[in-house]
C-alpha cells in the first residue's frame, strides 16, 4: 500500500482555555473521501483550519505528501468566501498568479465546474448561490490540488442546487483522482460521498470506519444517536 496522502497524529488545538481539538489522529489515502460528521461546536472546522495551517495546533503533527498549495480548503458560505468587489476573472487570477500558472486556463476551469466563460466579468452578487460555490471550487482547483478539505460545502445551498454540487464533486473526484475530506453536520450528505466516515464529538473522533459499516453497525452510542436523528428525518 502506498504512503498516505495526509496523516494526522495526536492533533490538539486550543483557543485560550478552550480545548477545541483533542488528540485527533487519522490517515487519508489517495482518491478516497473521508467524511467527518459532527454537530456544531464539536471542533470540525477547527480541525480543518489546523490542517491548512489557518490555525496553529498546540501539539501533534500534520504530514501532507506534497507542496502545501496542493492542499486546498473550500468554505461553507459561498458568498462570504468571495470578495464582493472582485469579478470572477479576478477571483480566478489570484490563485493562478500565486502558483505561477497561466490565465489561459480560466475557461477550462469554469468548464470543469459546469460554468461558461461568460461569467468571467461578473461580480459575486450577480451569481446564484450554486454558481458562487462552483466558483469557489474552481478557485481551489486552479492550483491543481491533490486534496480538498470541503467544510460544509453544500449546507448553505437549497436541495436542488445541493444535488448539483454533490454530483459535481463526485465527477471531479473521478476525473481528477482527487482526495476529499468532507466535513458536514449532515449524515446523509457525508454518507452520500464518503468511503470512510469519522464521527467527531467534543473535539475527539469517537468512531472511524468504512462508511457502510458506520451506517449499518455503528459502535459508538453517539453515532447511533446521530443515525436515529437522521432516520427520523428520512423520507
Amino acid at each position: 500500500m502506498s504512503a498516505p496522502l495526509l496523516s494526522v497524529s495526536g492533533l490538539h488545538v486550543h483557543y485560550g482555555a478552550i480545548h477545541a481539538v483533542r488528540g485527533v489522529s487519522f490517515e487519508l489515502g489517495r482518491s478516497e473521501t473521508l467524511g467527518l460528521v459532527g454537530e456544531s461546536g464539536c471542533g470540525k472546522t477547527s480541525l480543518a483550519r489546523a490542517l491548512v495551517k489557518l490555525t496553529r495546533p498546540s501539539s501533534g503533527t500534520v504530514r501532507f505528501d506534497g507542496p502545501p498549495r496542493k492542499l486546498q480548503l473550500v468554505f461553507q458560505d459561498p458568498h462570504a468566501a468571495l470578495d464582493p468587489r472582485m469579478t470572477v476573472r479576478a477571483a480566478l487570477a489570484e490563485p493562478l498568479d500565486i502558483a505561477g500558472l497561466p490565465h489561459a486556463r480560466m475557461p477550462e476551469l469554469l468548464e470543469a465546474v459546469g460554468l461558461g466563460p461568460e461569467l468571467l466579468p461578473r461580480l459575486p452578487r450577480e451569481l446564484s448561490a450554486g454558481q458562487r460555490q462552483r466558483i469557489n471550487i474552481a478557485r481551489a482547483l486552479s492550483v491543481e490540488p491533490t486534496l480538498l478539505v470541503l467544510d460544509e460545502p453544500v449546507s448553505a445551498l437549497d436541495v436542488s442546487v445541493q444535488a448539483q454540487v454533490l454530483n459535481l464533486l463526485s465527477e471531479l473526484q473521478q476525473r481528477r483522482g482527487l482526495t476529499y475530506l468532507l466535513i458536514s453536520h449532515d449524515l446523509a450528505v457525508v454518507s452520500h460521498l464518503a468511503t470512510r466516515i469519522a464521527v467527531m464529538r467534543e473535539g475527539e473522533l469517537v468512531e472511524l470506519g468504512p462508511a457502510e459499516q458506520v451506517i449499518v453497525t455503528p459502535q459508538h452510542p453517539y453515532t447511533r444517536a446521530l443515525l436515529e436523528a437522521a432516520a427520523r428525518l428520512a423520507l
Binding site: 444535488a163 460521498l193 462508511a211 443515525l227
Partner: peptide, 24 residues
C-alpha cells in the same frame, strides 16, 4: 418529484443524485 429525488440519503451512496437543473 424533483425535490424528493434530489435529496441525498443514507442509501444514495454510489449513485449520482437526480439534480434539478437551473435555480429558483
Amino acid at each position: 418529484a424533483a425535490l424528493l429525488k434530489a435529496r441525498p440519503s443514507l442509501q444514495s451512496r454510489g449513485h449520482p443524485l437526480e439534480a434539478l437543473l437551473g435555480q429558483v
